[in-house]
């Protein structure tokens, strides 16, 4: 009844993350914070970045949106602790490449950890922006740091 593509996008681990939302809940302080809104669907997300020097301690976030955008933020939360800012930039770039691969994937997706489960989203052009929401928000945090 359900196509392989749909099951590929909505893998159990994604649906679990969309419900569990690792890292959900904002802190009173952050090294950078940004708010992203997707005006076409109303999804929104606030992303806080917490650093120890040049290394990511954690992220925290709040938002409302579809299962893909929520799961993606949760998976991102699990990926980033311990990364340097340069490594984080690279991960975001790699994830963007994965999302725009139209199902083809990327050569080396190991640096993305569990977030590779979102690869199935790349077959659905209209949903790529959902998966990117948290990552774009974190990218905006990094841009603030650079200022």
């Amino acid at each position: 009844m359900t196509s392989g593509d749909l099951a590929g996008m909505y893998q159990q681990v994604i649906l679990e993350h969309s419900r569990e939302k690792h890292g959900f809940g904002l802190h009173s302080e952050a090294d950078a914070s940004s708010h992203q809104l997707n005006p076409t669907c109303g999804d929104e997300l606030t992303m806080q970045l917490h650093l120890d020097g040049d290394v990511v301690r954690s992220i925290s976030w709040e938002g409302a949106g579809c299962s893909i955008s929520m799961a993606s933020a949760s998976l991102l939360h699990d990926l980033v602790p311990g990364l340097t800012i340069a490594e984080l930039h690279a991960r975001i770039g790699l994830f963007r490449e994965l999302m725009h691969s139209k199902g083809a994937g990327v050569d080396d997706d190991e640096p993305l950890g569990d977030a590779v489960v979102l690869e199935g989203v790349s077959k659905y052009m209209a949903r790529v922006k959902c998966a990117m929401l948290a990552w774009v928000a974190l990218e905006a945090d990094l841009a603030q740091l650079a200022k």
Binding site: M1, T2, S3, D5, L6, M9, Y10, T40, C41, G42, D43, G65, C66, S67, I68, Y124, R127, C130
Partner: peptide, 22 residues
């Protein structure tokens, strides 16, 4: 418990075209 975009995606998989969003 299910966002409209996910509802619409599920219906699309069955060939059903609906509008999702505001």
């Amino acid at each position: 418990g299910v966002h409209a975009h996910d509802v619409g995606q599920f219906l699309d998989d069955r060939g059903i075209a609906v509008r999702v969003g505001h």
